[in-house]
Structure formats: structure tokens, C-alpha cells
Write a protein that binds this DNA or RNA. Sequence first.
DNA 1: GTTCGTTTGTGATTGATTTCACAAGGAAAG
DNA 2: CTTTCCTTGTGAAATCAATCACAAACGAAC
Lengths: 211, 211
Amino acid sequence: MRPAKISESAVRRLSLYLRVLDAFELAGKTTVSSGDLAELGGMTPAQVRKDLSHFGSFGKRGLGYPVSELRERVTEILGLGRRWRVGLVGAGKLGAALFFYDGFRGQGFDVVGVFDNDPGKIGQHWGRLVVEDIESIDRVVRAARIEMGIIVTPVISAQSVADLLIAAGVGAILNFAPTRLRVPPGITLRNVNLEIELESLAFALTHENGA
Amino acid sequence: MRPAKISESAVRRLSLYLRVLDAFELAGKTTVSSGDLAELGGMTPAQVRKDLSHFGSFGKRGLGYPVSELRERVTEILGLGRRWRVGLVGAGKLGAALFFYDGFRGQGFDVVGVFDNDPGKIGQHWGRLVVEDIESIDRVVRAARIEMGIIVTPVISAQSVADLLIAAGVGAILNFAPTRLRVPPGITLRNVNLEIELESLAFALTHENGA
DNA sequence: GTTCGTTTGTGATTGATTTCACAAGGAAAG
DNA sequence: CTTTCCTTGTGAAATCAATCACAAACGAAC
């Protein structure tokens, strides 16, 4: 039930299954086969079954998986059976876009702290929150029991912000700054690097056909 | 020189090498070893050498790689020796954040078309551009010879926008809508799904220690 | 010009992930 | 109750990616 080691990509597929299951539940289906899940999720039936089998056996042979129950189980596995408190560092345009995006709240993530080091931004009201000074990260993260950090600062500040968040007890960081952050063992780091994404498109277009 | 098949992850590492090389060039170094690149890029020396060897042999044994020349070669390999014309669909907060982000221009990507279907947004001036109706995608993409699309629309519109872009000749799409797009063979698709990133953090925090 | 220390390039190896293929389980029909 | 038709769960096999380890190449020193 608590498996040895699940690959990063398998975990990401679980998130996809969850969305497909939502769609099936909305459509009123009560059971789905691994083939159904694979079809809409864009992978193979065998992979769906293998992924799910790491966490137990939820399906009935000959019939498939019960939509509602599987959705609950995957939600639980992903750690989405509760709400998460998130701190957002960087109150620029991208920070604002993320803050006001509803999708996070819908999935259980509440941004309960916003930070910047620009005196022009500190003190601004964002929804019910006030933008705090980066200097206050330690205090606010502890007071609000913030568990995850999102870094949307320029490259130059990213590492020091990460250090501050970690010192204050944050255990996981989502980094949008296009730089490699160093974090101690035990801290989970994921990077979203938009430049790399575009560059990978450029590579694909350049090499797809002798062009 | 034109290798058979390069893994997606190897291409992404090339982007990282490019950034590390920039840093070394700025610092005035003329040569770097695979060890140096690995140190700052966060991978192993062997991997650096293997990645680079797919495209030729750029280094000198006993000495390392010439920074400036290697930077040029990697730039060329990634297809960044030219500028790319990009269309941005979705003029919401996230679209605006991406549009006004300087990093893309710096890497050779010019957003030369912005689209939305909200009458309140169509006609707005963004920098030198005017936000166009989604209905005009076909005309504008052809006229401006747009090569890549970035989709930052709600889920509901994402697939139809992708279809429009592809029909107009776009060969690569970067999709931010949290849904799976279907694209024909030959079209390159990359997804950035922020919900999945957060969920993978939640999974990590939930499973890291019996907590 | 020989030796020494360094670093590349790469075949071989190991490791991880995906796919295959099939036995076993279950529902349904007669 | 037996047969038929599906679909799961999972070892085995195949594919793909990362790491190892070492011969070959080069510069520097003397």
C-alpha cells in the first residue's frame, strides 16, 4: 500500500487519471476500464493498470474500476484529501496570474501568503491578503504554517528566497525562475522553465525534417 | 551530426548547458570541462559528454571544451541561431504575464500575434500589437508566418484553438490549459500543467516520511 | 622527445521504465 | 451450473536512459 518507489512520471500520470475520472464521473459513468482511462489520458491500458497496481488493486476483473471509488483513492494517494497552504514569492505579473488563477483553489491549494521585495508592491491588497516584505518570510511562513513555496522572482533573488523558505520550514518548492536552485536533501523541488519549453519546440521544428 | 534520435530529456539538458555556458563566458572563462558543466548544471560529467557527443565532438582531450565555440554550436543545435515567430492565444492574466516577460525575446522568441475571443479584449493594444479575434487566427498566422503557438485559454477552448493553429500551419504548440490536446503526427506539443506540478509536490510531502 | 597529469569520447554495463502476454477472476446468459 | 466474454493484475521481456570505466588525445614541463 505504501510502495517502495514510484517514479516521478508515474505520479504525474496519476494526476492525469484524476482528471479523466472527473470527466467520467461528470458523464455519469460508474465504471471505467483501463482502456477507457488510457484512451482519454493518452497512454496505454497496460501502463494504467501497472500504475494503479502499485497502490493496491482497485478494479474488478471483467468489469473495470469503480469511477467514484477510484477517484477517491487516487485523490488520497496524491495527498489531495486535504488542503495545502502555499506561499507565493514574487508579486509581479506572473505571480499575479498564478494568484488569481482559480484552478489551484479547486485542487486544494490555498495561497495564504504573498511576498515581494519591491516597496511599491509591499502593502498592496491582493484579495484578502496583503503583500508582505520578503524579510517577513520566516515570520509569516511559520505563523500561517505554510507548507509549499512558489518562486516567481527574477533569477537573482531565487536562491536566497528558496533558502529563506526552507529555513522557515517549507518542504516543497515550485520554481519558475530560470535557474537551478540548490536545496538540501529532503526538500522537494520542481522546476517550470518556460524558456526550456520553447527551446525544446525550436529544436523539434529545426530537426523534424531535413529543413 | 544529424543524430538518429535524441531523447526529450537530453534536449532539455542542452538548454541548461547553454545557460551555464553563458555564465562561464560572462565570467571570462575560455574553456570548460564536462565536470565544470556538470557541477553547475546539476548532472554528471559522463552525461554531459554523452549528450554533447550525439552531435559531434567539440572538446579537446586533456583540456575541455572551448566555451565560446561550444555555446555557438549548442545554440545552433537547439535551433536558436535565428528568431522564431510565436502566436499567443489567450489574453488573460497568464497570457499577459507571458507576453510582457522579457526572457523569451532574449532567447530569440518574438510574440507577433495575440488572440482572444472576449470582445472586451479584442482591439486592446499590447505593446505594438493589437489583440485579434480568435476567428482571425488563420489569416494572421499566415500573414505573420507564425511558427509556434502558445495556448493560455480555458480548457473549454483549448482543443479548438489548437486545431485552428495547426490548420493555419503552426508546427509546434506549448499548451498551458490543463487538458490533453490531440494533435496530428508531425506536430510537436509540450504541456505545462501547473496543477500537476503542485499535485506532485503534495504527493512528495505526503509520502516522504510516514507522516 | 619523453613523461605526467588531465580530460574527452564511447563501448559496455547497469538501472529504470514501458510494454507484452497470459493466467486468474468475475459477470451474465441460458 | 456451465460456458462465454471481458478485464484485471503481474511476472517476463523489451526498450530506453544513465552511468561506468578506460583507451586515446592533448598540453605542459623538463
